[in-house]
Amino acid sequence: MKKIHIVGIIVIAVAIGVILTSLKNTSTYADFNEALANPDQEYHVVGKLNKNEPTVYDPKVNADEFTFTLVDNKGVEKRVVLHKSKPQDFERSEQIVVIGKMHGEEFHANDILMKCPSKYNDAKPQS
């Protein structure tokens, strides 16, 4: 067996492993209805904050729970329970991605990503 064959085998093994990893990563972008259909499945839901609904953060009771209402890109509204502290400048966010799954009528998120006009991004100013 030539050494080039060993190299070839390693490449194939790694390739299979990589594909398996990316298949195992079942998390996809979705909307609330898809998440509702598969409550065991983790999803990334992209949406906007509904500013008319209250946001609840009472650190005295639990510093790692924050509740708000998100409207997904299809216009479906759900209460989101984030199991983290309230992010800085939450109200200023333009777009929110919550990562988690549906639990009853609530979406429970273990992580959140926000696009703010101010940070990292030089998007348009609000005035």
Binding site: P59, N62, D64, E65, S85, K101, N110
Partner: peptide, 22 residues
């Protein structure tokens, strides 16, 4: 460690935010 955080068992791992203290 935030002991007040309640674990939602049915959600599985990763949903027990216990990293912030008041």
């Amino acid at each position: 460690k935030n002991t007040a955080a309640k674990q939602v068992e049915s959600l599985g791992e990763g949903f027990s935010g216990q990293e912030n203290i008041f």
